[in-house]
């Protein structure tokens, strides 16, 4: 399997280990990734706070590059990048005014034909039975609590990914390693990430809220995407 790859800025910097472990995992699963040549930032939460067209044009530039480089499916492991790419694709396909504005900015006509996958979708796309065959060590000693956060599941009519309030796709993935994912209430609660720099106290409070319920049933790890 050969897929387009949009790592996003964080995976090249502070989330470097996420990039490394993803590449190692996909290598073991014999999935080849071709990075989009000369990709640029998706604008994350700052672009859509500043200008609605800029917020669409930044991801659209990458969608067009991927298309030009012959890709039809791209993997965006970062939840914010995945969300911005998916929202942009949806807007460009359904909102003519927005598409016109973005085409004027990019000076290129837009054409669709790109599937955008987050990491959980990618594992389902590869096929859970295929992955199960390649697992070398059972992880039954772990009791993971799966954390989806906001941007994989919302807005649900656009991402179309699982249930917005009670998703289970990630649990299905971790459970093929022989572990049992625990049920908890904070799967899709916001961690406040966009305020990490300016309002660290808010982020601390929102993230700490999630730890006691996860710990109280000897839940040992939280996995996210």
């Amino acid at each position: 399997m050969n897929l387009g790859y949009y790592p996003g800025c964080s995976l090249e910097g502070s989330a470097k280990e996420f990039n490394q472990s993803l590449k190692a995992t996909l290598q073991a699963l014999e999935v080849q990734l071709s990075e989009i040549d000369d990709w640029s930032c998706c604008g994350a939460s700052s672009a859509h706070s500043a200008n609605h067209l800029l917020a669409l044009a930044l991801p659209a530039r990458n969608l067009l590059l991927a298309k030009k480089q012959g890709m039809s499916e791209i993997v965006a492991p970062c939840a914010a990048c995945y969300n911005r790419l998916a929202v942009t694709r949806h807007e460009l396909n359904n909102n003519e005014t927005a598409r016109k504005g973005v085409e004027d900015l990019l000076e290129t006509p837009y054409s669709d034909g790109m599937q955008i996958l987050n990491l959980v979708q990618l594992f389902h796309h590869i096929g859970l039975p295929v992955i199960k065959e390649k697992i070398k060590r059972q992880m039954s000693f772990l009791k993971p609590a799966c954390y989806y956060g906001c941007l994989l599941v919302r807005p649900n009519n656009i991402t179309g990914f699982d249930d917005a309030e009670h998703p289970t796709a990630m649990e299905q993935v971790v459970e093929i390693t022989g572990t049992k994912a625990v049920d908890w209430n904070f799967k899709v609660e916001c961690c406040g990430a966009s305020h990490s720099i300016a309002h660290t106290k808010i982020v601390e409070k929102l993230s700490k809220n999630k730890l006691p319920p996860a710990r109280c049933a000897t839940r040992t790890s939280i996995c996210g995407s």
Binding site: R154, P155, G192
Partner: peptide
């Protein structure tokens, strides 16, 4: 400006009002 853009509001609105997008427009 404190809206974190989590879109919980938009997802739950009985009138399908995309409040997170409204907040984006307010900032802009």
């Amino acid at each position: 400006w404190l809206c974190a853009g989590c879109q919980t509001c938009s997802g739950r609105c009985p009138k399908d009002f995309h409040l997170a997008q409204f907040m984006d427009a307010m900032r802009e």
